[in-house]
């Protein structure tokens, strides 16, 4: 099972997963969760146009075309949200459908030529991670490293700007530059990620690992690292599972695994984490209450007190989870 092609696919998938997971945190925290969907759809006309003009199926060429129309879509969305009363959902929806419609028009032009376009469209709509070659892997690797490097270098500026842009502007960090940087990183990630899962499933690959990581972690650094890890995990599991079961496409499988991970996290993480981290019972004063209530209440009260006692013991033992309650 673990032959050369498989190793390439796995490495490629994990790199894409890491990249999407890391950038996805920023997308999520900026409140642009569906940006991935919109920009991915908006990339189609650019990709088709690049194909028409250059007649090559080189990944880099097609993706550059996609980058141009994707960037145009992002600009249009920003323009509409800043200058009109429309909210970002309407802007995203419009860019999505209109650009994709343009892409469909261009595709019919392509259809008339004696060149097969099916495979390209397949790759675009559903991703083609299971068919990537060594050259594509190198390309993905280089781009992923560059993006991650940028994030490490500009870490504090990026985090602080996403948190409070006007404050950062007021201390001298031009928000235009930071915003531009983030948008470029997001655009690159979406275009690369298209190869993994395709247009329709893009948003999950971006935000599911981030949402899942957010359920478990409370600091930006851990959220980003865990999100990258979850992204890689979903991609690898997706590839392996789709390989085991014959005939299942890889992209959807990755999405299923990622979704499973995020829903599991959403359902259980708050349950578990509360028990360990933030659970705080009013301090047990050691005074037993005299009961004038019904039997049911008595039982509850006793149970609560006993539970509180055991909780205090547990807290005492695991010192770092004791929090002084400080409500001024």
């Amino acid at each position: 099972m673990l032959d050369y092609t498989m190793v390439i696919v796995l490495i490629g998938a994990s790199l894409l997963g890491i990249l999407s997971g890391v950038i996805g945190v920023f997308i999520l925290l900026r409140g642009q969760s569906l940006l991935g969907d919109a920009v991915a759809h908006a990339a189609l006309p650019g990709i088709v146009l690049a194909f028409l003009v250059t007649e090559s199926k080189n990944i880099l060429v097609l993706l550059s075309g996609g980058a141009v129309s994707g960037a145009a879509g992002m600009l249009l969305m920003t323009l509409v949200t800043t200058h009109t009363r429309l909210k970002k959902d309407a802007a995203q929806g419009m860019v999505l459908s209109i650009f994709f419609g343009l892409g469909l028009i261009l595709l019919t032009v392509v259809q008339k030529r004696p060149i097969t376009h099916q495979s390209m469209l397949n790759k675009f709509l559903f991703g083609n991670i299971s068919t990537i070659l060594y050259q594509d892997l190198v390309c993905i690797g280089v781009i992923t490293s560059i993006v991650l490097l940028f994030i490490i270098i500009f870490w504090k500026e990026l985090v602080a700007s996403v948190f409070d842009a006007s404050y950062m502007q007021s201390v001298g960090f031009r928000q235009q530059s930071v915003s531009f940087l983030i948008s470029i990183l997001i655009l690159i990630t979406i275009l690369i990620g298209l190869q993994a899962v395709g247009v329709i499933l893009m948003s999950t690959l971006l935000i599911a690992p981030a949402v899942a990581a957010r359920q478990w972690c409370d600091s930006m650094r851990s959220v980003v690292i865990v999100s990258g890890f979850f992204g890689a995990l979903s991609s690898i599991m997706g590839v392996l599972l789709s390989n085991c079961m014959v005939g299942i496409p890889t992209g959807p499988m990755i999405v299923v695994v990622a979704s499973g991970l995020v829903f599991f996290s959403i359902m259980t993480a708050s349950f578990i984490a509360k028990r360990i981290k933030n659970f705080s019972v009013p301090p047990y004063t050691g005074v037993t209450q005299t009961n004038t209530h019904t039997q049911k209440n008595t039982h509850t009260q006793v149970r609560t007190q006993a539970y509180a006692q055991s909780r205090i013991c547990f807290c005492y033992m695991s010192k770092k989870y004791i929090k002084q309650k400080d409500r001024a």
């Binding site: 996403v162 948190f163 409070d164 930006m220």
Partner: peptide, 12 residues
């Protein structure tokens, strides 16, 4: 700035 200008769910 005003307190409402920030998302207090941010993980920091």
């Amino acid at each position: 700035p005003q307190r409402m200008s920030v998302d207090w769910d941010f993980p920091i």
